[in-house]
Design a protein around this nucleic acid. Structure first.
Length: 675
RNA sequence: GCCGGGAUAGCUCAGCUGGUUAGAGCGUCGGAAUCAUAAUCCGUAGGUCGGGGGUUCAAGUCCCUCUCCCGGUACCA
């Protein structure tokens, strides 16, 4: 029965306005890749889908902020992220993107289907409209004075000063963030999806689900308990999938509604590429297919309530069989966050370390049950003591022994020694235990069990003492080494889901094809006596302290410093000239509400003023700083910290938990260049 | 404020419906071994399971309460 089911595995569509970081990988991409690889070793029918989510306000905002087209933004992140996945061996069958025509067609068909059934309801709201730009302004495009605290730069959805939730209509003196002009109030009609109508169906459906993770169920129950409400499915925006109904010019399908359909359009695209354009239905519309969504916890309600409801509304589609969401992976005690500039981008870490080492580190510490922690030191420790020490060493000692004592050829085996049979049987039984772990998404346990096999292999080598036996009985020694070589092959299979690159390298070293790279060959003898081994190579070179130190230092700059790429070395004067340093006087200084370390500073730079947010409140009180002359980076790309705009960076020295800001020795005019 | 989730050995984490001396990996310390990337193997030590109270023959596991962290959500007109 199980044999005949198909698997349709999806990984969350990353939003194309930032680079993916290790937290994303550990939470939503490595787990499905491991799962899919395991299934493939078992010859199961599985396809693995993901792609970039490329519409919505945030991308349009980014494009305006950078004065480029949205297309430039999404291209930048789409291709970078696609490459990041490839570099890490996350092997999607297709990594598509929602800006593709096929996705627009699919989403519009979906919308029309539901629209034609009169499922959608229309509501009219007052919204701010910019006559200059001739369009409605999304919440985040509006800025104005907060009616609660009087802060003049409040956003349309939230005041970043006092934290109040706002509607753009409440703002005093609202302005367009793009052009600065004053918008007018205009009515706009939108379509809503009546999620509440599906409450009962969803509850019943969820009740029938066995084996879902507790955290996933909890999130859903929370929402159901609160009652599901209508959700707008259209928006006044340029950038997105147009509403395919007349009279809705300037409106697009709300991104939350359209994005998950990206899984469907990506599947269509995949089978068009494979010249089987109808075959996607065999997955999406086939009850024998198990649809599994791998996501992070932020996405739970979309994948286990909202998207299923829209699938129900359309009809004909299967619903997810499981949604194994993970928690988050933090970074050295902090959230991995774009706005805070903390975390490790995949593009940076893959430039420096072996993808399998990264995969191993992330997998062994996956946030399966609760938020977990990525620590640089861990990468070194895992590599040196586990990958190199246990795994790499076993392969290496076996291969080197074969080379030195058996002419680099696979020894004959007449009878397998009893202890050899034991270890092979142990491998087999472990592989059976692993089946259950993989099927229940317990990948951390699976990794431990996998490494147990390698440990046992080392023990077999030790206990058998081939280096002694070689002196008395070469044939028997050959049999021991032969068993070890067979174990190497089994290990190549066992580690394949986690360490695909190393798995391949082991096959190369053994000089065999991948035809026996099948789960049911674990613990089997498959090598051919007399065959010569391939060239040996060290699978996991030691990672030195210095290599890790560089990373730790590069990413410990605190909130105001972006994690830098792992690059060191000498720069030219031209490089340095790119940085504009100026003397500035602190004229105002207040803590950022709700933040732990942030101070908001208003600075006088002689001819101009600017606002900088700096993570120094643990070291300085606001009143200590007012009037001080400080040094700032004047031409840093602006960013937001805790929702507060920051237009530069304050220089400070930091060491061992101490921090001192850079000040000027004596009097000089503010705005003076520093070099 | 309300809802949910955390707080377990030096570090990173497991502990299902309550049940013998609380587990794993890594690290520490000691020993064995020397084929191997100073890599392996064996053994040892390490925790009043965030604090306090309660239910029970029995609680890390259930209940109450407090502290701290993390999400979500509301209000603050």
């Amino acid at each position: 029965m199980k044999k005949h089911s198909k698997y349709l595995v999806t990984a969350a569509l990353p939003y194309a306005n930032s680079f993916i970081h290790t937290g994303h990988i550990a939470g939503a991409y490595l787990p499905p890749d491991i799962f899919v690889r395991y299934k493939r070793l078992n010859d199961e029918d599985v396809i693995f889908i993901s792609g970039s989510d490329e519409h919505g306000t945030a991308i349009e905002m980014a494009s305006i902020a950078e004065n480029v087209t949205p297309r430039e933004i999404i291209d930048r992140y789409h291709f970078a992220n696609k490459k990041s996945f490839e570099d890490l061996g996350i092997n999607f069958d297709i990594y598509s993107r929602t800006s593709n025509k096929i996705h627009h067609d699919t989403a519009q068909e979906f919308f029309l289907n539901i629209y034609n059934k009169n499922i959608l309801v229309q509501k009219t709201d007052k919204q701010l409209f910019s006559e200059k730009e001739n369009r409605f302004l999304a919440d985040r495009f509006v800025t104005g004075t907060c009616p609660v605290c009087g802060y003049e730069e409040a956003r349309g959805d939230e005041c970043s000063n006092c934290g109040s939730n706002l509607s753009p209509l409440e703002l005093i003196n609202p302005r367009s963030k793009i052009t600065g002009d004053i918008p007018v109030i205009k009515e706009s009609t939108h379509y809503y999806f009546p999620l509440g109508d599906y409450q009962e169906k969803l509850e019943k459906w969820l009740d029938s689900k066995k084996g879902w993770k507790q955290n996933v169920m909890n999130y859903c129950k929370g929402w159901l308990k609160a009652g599901l409400r209508d959700r707008a499915v259209s928006r006044d925006l340029d950038w997105g999938v147009k509403i395919p109904v007349k009279g809705n010019e300037g409106k697009v399908i709300y991104v939350w509604f359209e994005a998950p359909m990206g899984y469907i359009s990506a599947t269509k695209e995949l089978f068009i590429e494979r010249n089987e354009p109808e075959k996607w239905k065999d997955y999406w519309m086939n009850e024998d297919t198990k649809l599994i969504h791998f996501i992070g916890k932020d996405n739970i309600v979309f994948h286990s309530l909202i998207f299923p409801a829209t699938l129900m509304a359309h009809g004909g589609y299967i619903l997810p069989d499981n949604v194994p969401a993970n928690e988050f992976m933090n970074f050295e005690g902090e959230k991995q966050s774009k706005s805070k500039g903390t975390g490790v981008f995949v593009k940076d870490i893959t430039a420096k370390f072996d993808p399998d080492v990264i995969r191993y580190t992330l997998a062994s510490n996956m946030p399966e049950n609760k938020d977990s922690e990525f620590v640089w030191k861990d990468l070194q420790v895992k590599n040196n003591s586990e990958l190199a020490g246990i795994l790499g060493n076993f392969i290496n000692r076996t291969v080197v022994f074969t080379k030195n004592k058996f002419d680099n050829r696979i020894p004959e085996i007449k009878t397998i020694p009893e202890t050899g049979n034991d270890i092979l049987a142990f491998f087999k039984s472990q592989s059976e235990k692993l089946n259950e772990l993989y099927d229940t998404f317990k990948f951390k346990d699976a990794l431990l069990l996998t490494m147990d096999c390698v440990r046992a292999a080392n023990k077999y080598f030790n206990d058998s003492e081939p280096w002694k036996v070689i002196n008395t009985d070469k044939e028997k020694c050959g049999e021991i080494i032969r068993v070890c070589l067979e174990l190497c092959h089994s290990i190549a299979i066992l580690i394949n889901p986690f360490l695909p690159f190393s798995s391949e390298r082991i096959l190369k070293i053994l000089n065999v094809s991948d035809k026996d790279l099948k789960w049911n060959k674990i613990g089997k003898t498959i090598l051919t006596a007399g065959n010569e081994l391939g060239k040996n190579r060290i699978l996991f070179p030691q990672i030195e302290d210095s290599e890790i130190e560089i990373q730790v230092q590069a990413s410990s700059g605190g909130e105001t410093v972006k994690t830098v790429s792992p690059q060191t070395g000498i720069i030219t004067i031209e490089d340095f000239k790119k940085v504009s340093l100026k003397v500035a006087k602190v004229i105002e200084c207040v803590p950022v509400p709700k933040s732990k370390k942030l101070l908001k500073l208003k600075l006088n730079l002689g001819t101009s003023e600017k606002q900088i947010v700096s993570g120094i409140s643990e070291f300085y009180k606001p009143e200590d700083l007012i009037g001080k002359l400080v040094v700032v980076v004047d031409n840093l790309v602006p960013s937001k910290l805790m929702g507060v705009d920051s237009e530069g960076m304050l220089l400070a020295a930091k060491q061992n938990g101490e921090l001192k800001i850079v000040t000027i020795d004596g009097d000089i005019q503010t705005g003076a260049d520093v070099n």
